[in-house]
Simulated scan of single mutants.
Amino acid sequence: MALEGLAGDYKAAPFISREEIRRLAVAHGTKPSLRSHPNVVSLSERQQKEL
């Protein structure tokens, strides 16, 4: 990427508005939280089990 910048071949990413991001997020839907997953153990719980 540094060579592209020196050569002047760098193209900026297209502008995406917050509204477009919001629409994409709504269309994509929600995913369940990993924190609420029953198989996930927090670091503090893991350390307590080792003691």
Rank of each mutant, 00 (worst) to 15 (best):
M1V: 10
M1P: 07
A2I: 06
L3Y: 04
L3I: 04
E4A: 05
E4K: 05
G5L: 06
L6M: 03
L6H: 00
L6R: 01
L6S: 00
L6V: 01
L6W: 00
L6C: 01
A7K: 08
A7T: 07
A7H: 07
A7D: 11
G8K: 06
G8I: 06
G8H: 08
D9W: 02
D9G: 02
D9Q: 03
D9K: 05
D9N: 05
D9P: 00
D9H: 02
Y10K: 11
K11Q: 13
K11D: 05
A12G: 04
A12N: 07
A12Q: 10
A12E: 14
A13H: 01
P14F: 01
P14W: 01
P14Q: 09
F15Q: 05
I16N: 00
I16R: 04
I16H: 00
I16D: 00
S17L: 09
S17T: 14
S17M: 07
S17K: 02
S17A: 11
R18T: 02
R18E: 13
E19W: 04
E19Y: 05
E20G: 03
E20C: 03
I21W: 08
I21D: 12
R22G: 03
R22H: 03
R22V: 03
R22P: 00
R22C: 01
R23N: 14
R23L: 12
R23V: 10
L24Q: 13
L24T: 11
L24F: 10
A25E: 15
A25P: 02
A25W: 12
A25Y: 13
V26Q: 04
V26L: 07
V26M: 01
V26C: 00
V26T: 05
A27E: 15
A27M: 11
H28D: 15
H28V: 14
G29V: 13
G29D: 12
T30M: 13
T30V: 12
K31M: 09
K31H: 06
K31V: 12
P32Q: 10
P32W: 06
P32V: 08
S33P: 08
L34V: 10
L34I: 11
R35L: 14
S36Q: 12
S36W: 09
S36M: 08
S36N: 13
S36T: 12
H37S: 05
H37Q: 03
H37K: 02
P38L: 08
P38D: 14
P38G: 08
N39E: 15
N39W: 08
N39T: 14
N39K: 14
N39V: 06
N39C: 09
V40Y: 14
V40N: 13
V41N: 08
V41H: 10
V41I: 11
S42K: 07
S42W: 03
S42L: 08
L43W: 07
L43Q: 09
L43Y: 08
S44T: 11
S44C: 07
S44M: 08
S44P: 06
S44G: 07
E45L: 02
E45S: 07
E45W: 00
E45F: 01
R46V: 02
R46A: 15
R46N: 03
Q47A: 11
Q47H: 02
Q48W: 12
Q48M: 12
K49E: 15
K49Q: 15
K49L: 15
E50V: 03
E50K: 13
E50D: 08
L51S: 13
L51H: 11
L51P: 02
L51G: 14
